[in-house]
Amino acid sequence: MFRQKMYDILLDWKSRFQGRTAMLVEGVRRVGKSTVVEEFTRREYRSYILVDFAEASRDVHELFDDVSDLDYLFLQLQLRYSARLLDRELLIILDEVQMCVRVRQAIKQLVKDGRYDYIGTGSLVSIRRNTRDILIPSEEERAQMRPMDFDEFRWARGDDATVPLLRRAFASRRPLGERFNRRLMRDFRLYMLVGGMPQAVDALLRTNDPSTGLSSSIDLGKFKLYLADTDLFVTLAFKDADFTDNIVYGKLLSDKLPVNLGMVYENVVDQELTAHGRRLFYHTWPKPGTTRNYEIDFIVPDGKKVSPVEVKSSKYRTHASLYAFCGKYSSRVGRRYLVYTKDLDRDGAVDCIPTYMSAFL
């Protein structure tokens, strides 16, 4: 199993609430929810029961329709899953809870009973179909698990020193040196190609060959769509190209792909910001005298102000939209960022940030 930040979130939940709430780990399929929960359970509890509602029989599902007799429920689970029922030392994992929506309503009684701890996992658990006719309990904590961020990707490759170093460099705005920057950008492009899904990262570590098997104020009427994992974006963006997938990967990894990769770099910045809990906003407005628009790729909170972020796919440093935005909203602008592929730098009032530092924004 890879080291992932979700493990620390679960540790904090166990220590802070001590059984007073259940935890629900949400996330897309194959992101590693069940794996991290099972590993956490084996390390932190003396006994556990894993109820996988995607595979459980109908009578197991029906056990949670009526939880008025918890002694009967626990006895049935013990018989079916051959587990020791140890007060305050047993965790019951409710896997794929979207397949048994009644179990979420039962959480209130289960937590109130106080004998055991509960972690649910699931995908699409919040859509109307999966919450219809049930009362969502206030005793349910929720955590969103996303594809591995660049930090976790470095951990998987045995490196837990680089990202703290980058964080300090970002805070002090001290350049790293172009040689080190080139190496880091190559590593980051590898992350863009492989993505953050654990199976893809595992395949990279086993084969060291990213290839096709690892496969581009809110107005709710205007939005951008990004893919949760940039590897899938790259595969889809170039699937109709004249050259093979391996050539795409090789050229992107060496920074020699002869196309504008702005959309790919925007997607990976989105992935990093989202992985670190940032809500995503962008801003666009007409460019006077033309039919085109100015556009700021991302806007992030900066205390009582906001920080505009432009993303470029190379050392390209012109940023007309950034200057126009700062001129238009000067009293509300904090820091100004250009995210690009070169070393840390400063261009007037603009902080120029290498792509692999986008998580720190």
Results as ranks from 00 to 15, higher is better:
1 M>T: 07
2 F>V: 02
4 Q>M: 08
4 Q>G: 11
6 M>F: 11
13 W>L: 08
15 S>E: 12
15 S>V: 08
17 F>I: 10
17 F>N: 03
18 Q>I: 12
21 T>D: 03
24 L>D: 11
26 E>C: 15
29 R>T: 14
35 T>N: 07
42 R>T: 01
50 L>C: 04
54 A>K: 06
57 S>R: 09
61 H>A: 05
61 H>T: 01
62 E>A: 05
63 L>P: 06
64 F>R: 03
65 D>C: 08
65 D>Y: 14
68 S>A: 12
68 S>I: 10
72 Y>P: 00
75 L>C: 05
83 A>P: 00
83 A>I: 00
88 R>Y: 00
94 L>E: 05
97 V>H: 01
102 R>F: 08
109 Q>D: 14
111 V>Q: 10
111 V>N: 11
116 Y>M: 01
118 Y>A: 09
118 Y>V: 01
120 G>R: 03
122 G>I: 09
122 G>M: 04
128 R>S: 12
132 R>E: 07
135 L>Y: 08
137 P>C: 06
144 Q>C: 11
147 P>V: 08
149 D>Q: 09
155 W>S: 05
158 G>L: 01
159 D>H: 02
161 A>M: 10
164 P>N: 02
165 L>G: 10
168 R>M: 04
186 R>D: 04
189 R>L: 03
192 M>T: 09
195 G>S: 14
195 G>M: 03
199 Q>W: 01
209 D>R: 00
210 P>C: 03
211 S>L: 00
213 G>H: 00
222 K>M: 07
224 K>R: 15
226 Y>Q: 08
233 F>G: 09
235 T>C: 10
239 K>D: 12
241 A>D: 11
241 A>N: 05
242 D>H: 14
243 F>A: 12
244 T>C: 07
245 D>Q: 15
248 V>Y: 10
248 V>C: 14
255 D>H: 06
256 K>W: 13
261 L>E: 04
263 M>A: 12
265 Y>K: 06
270 D>T: 13
270 D>N: 10
271 Q>I: 03
275 A>M: 02
279 R>K: 06
281 F>P: 01
283 H>W: 04
283 H>F: 12
284 T>D: 15
287 K>A: 07
287 K>V: 03
291 T>E: 10
292 R>N: 14
293 N>E: 13
295 E>T: 09
298 F>T: 04
300 V>Y: 08
301 P>E: 02
301 P>M: 13
302 D>E: 08
308 P>G: 15
309 V>P: 13
313 S>W: 12
315 K>D: 14
316 Y>H: 04
322 L>R: 11
323 Y>R: 15
324 A>S: 06
330 S>L: 14
335 R>W: 07
336 R>K: 11
338 L>W: 04
341 T>S: 13
344 L>H: 04
350 V>L: 09
355 T>Q: 12
357 M>G: 05
358 S>E: 06
360 F>L: 02
361 L>W: 06
